[in-house]
């Protein structure tokens, strides 16, 4: 096993483990912090794949913005948000069985795919060039429409969020 594989397994274990911890955490805020660690693990995996831009964007957007947004949202609530009751359902084994079948199915599907064991040739350097992406984003024959639509999507997000957050506040005041 090469050093790269060891690092990958380690990062993968941390990502998965903190993901599980995020689900299991009794305190809402702990869950949020575990989620951050999990997202950071994903960023490391991007870095291991040498997808530099996605690695830093993962940290910038998911940890710098979304995780902080989640923590702000948690702090909006009045209760301390701790989970006192039992965390399992009487029929938990049913869910576990379903998950197991799903897991085996996905594994089988992947292993049956002939290309899974062959290692593809490394991408040419031009494939990871950001300028290519940038040119394609504003190319009318490329991704111009999705690029502009994403802007409108962001606008819609903001309008929706402000409508729900700010309008309600005024109603309460009346």
């Amino acid at each position: 096993m090469s050093a790269g594989q060891v690092i990958f397994l380690l990062v993968g274990a941390v990502t998965l483990g903190s993901g599980i911890a995020a689900v299991n955490a009794r305190k809402m805020l702990h869950a949020a912090l575990w989620l951050v660690l999990s997202l950071l693990g994903v960023a490391f995996i991007f870095a291991l794949l040498e997808a530099s831009f996605f690695a830093v964007v993962q940290v910038l957007v998911y940890i710098g913005a979304i995780a902080i947004l989640i923590i702000f949202a948690v702090m909006l609530s009045r209760s301390s948000l701790t989970d006192e009751g039992t965390q399992t359902n009487p029929r938990w084994w049913l869910a576990a069985l379903g998950l197991l079948i799903l897991f085996v199915g996905i594994c089988a599907a992947i292993l049956l795919w002939p290309k899974v064991t062959s290692i593809p040739a490394p991408l040419p350097a031009s494939a990871t060039d950001l300028a290519t992406l940038g040119k394609e984003l504003v190319n009318p024959n490329g991704y111009l429409v999705p690029f502009e639509l994403s802007s409108i999507l962001l606008l819609a997000t903001l309008v929706g969020a402000i409508y729900t957050a700010v309008e309600k506040k005024e109603e309460i005041k009346k």
């Binding site: 951050v36 830093v56 940290v59 940890i63 710098g64 995780a67 902080i68």
Partner: peptide, 12 residues
């Protein structure tokens, strides 16, 4: 972008 991303860790 790395500079900004690292700043996010500081905020955390």
């Amino acid at each position: 972008v790395y500079l900004m991303a690292v700043g996010a860790i500081g905020e955390l």
